[in-house]
Simulated scan of single mutants.
Amino acid sequence: MLNIALCDDTKLELSVVENYALQYPYTKVEIDTFGNGPKLLQYLSNNNIEYNIYLLDIEMPDMDGISLAKKIREFDKKAAIIFITSYSEYMQDVFKVQTFDYLMKPVDKETFFEVLLRADLYLHSTHSYFEFNYERNKYILNADEIMYFEKSGRTAHIYTETKAFKCNQTIAQILKQLDSMTFAQIHASYIVNLKYIAGMKCENVVLKKYMNNELMDTYQELPISRKYKKDFKTKIMNYVRKRF
């Protein structure tokens, strides 16, 4: 499913693009519409909601789309931002805010579907999710935000930057859901996200620690066993190459 925020001060354009989005044939879409940037930002501030895609008109009187995108990027680095504009002269500026793409007005439905499909594929290829049940509740976490898993008896503890969760999956079941290029098993009881690796210290892997999205001066150490050390070193080297 795609959660989309559409912001355009022109009611006709708002209606047309909203209808196109609801006709998107490849996956279910939920879309919220906003007549200006401040209303969108206020809604985000008041509600605990995340959008996968932002469709932003550039020419708006209260706050132009590029300024709005800069505000969004202050708290959301992952969503796909797609601009809608009548003027190609803005194109030089839109890519300064990690823009996914842009659409020219009047928006053509088939072109819109093509851009939305590419955004859909991009989001699902770069942001995988980890699903689990615990005490009759179902949870879905963004795998990118999981620091590590710790297995203790029948329970697996899942640690993110801000919270801890529990599930009853085995190590094998957990690994089956994860991207093998991003996560590595380092011990019979531990799986780590390579994104958070700071280095190695003796027989331990050193993890970065964050608080409120800020890197802390302290680090966390987890044991690495000889059995997994070679594979871990290979994975971390490949991960660094892939990123840089």
Rank of each mutant, 00 (worst) to 15 (best):
K11R: 14
K11I: 05
L12E: 13
L12C: 05
E13S: 11
V16Q: 12
V17W: 15
N19V: 06
Y20F: 15
A21I: 11
A21R: 15
L22G: 10
L22K: 14
Q23E: 15
Q23K: 14
Y24W: 12
P25E: 12
P25M: 12
Y26S: 09
T27S: 11
K28R: 15
V29T: 10
V29G: 10
E30F: 15
E30I: 14
E30D: 14
I31E: 10
I31S: 09
D32G: 03
D32Y: 12
D32A: 06
T33F: 02
F34S: 04
F34T: 04
G37W: 05
G37Q: 09
K39R: 13
K39L: 13
L40D: 00
L40M: 05
L40H: 02
L41A: 01
Q42S: 15
Q42G: 13
Y43D: 08
L44D: 06
S45T: 09
S45Q: 14
N46G: 09
N47P: 11
N48F: 07
N48Q: 14
N48P: 11
I49G: 08
Y51S: 02
N52A: 11
I53L: 08
L55W: 03
L56Y: 05
L56W: 00
D57R: 02
M60A: 05
M60I: 00
M60Y: 03
P61M: 00
P61K: 02
D62M: 07
M63N: 07
M63W: 03
G65S: 08
S67T: 06
A69H: 03
K71S: 09
K71D: 11
R73E: 00
E74F: 04
E74W: 06
E74D: 11
F75P: 06
D76M: 10
D76L: 06
A79M: 13
I82S: 08
I82A: 02
I82N: 08
F83S: 05
F83M: 06
F83H: 05
I84T: 10
T85H: 03
Y87A: 01
S88T: 09
E89M: 02
E89P: 01
Y90L: 01
Y90G: 00
M91I: 06
M91P: 06
M91L: 13
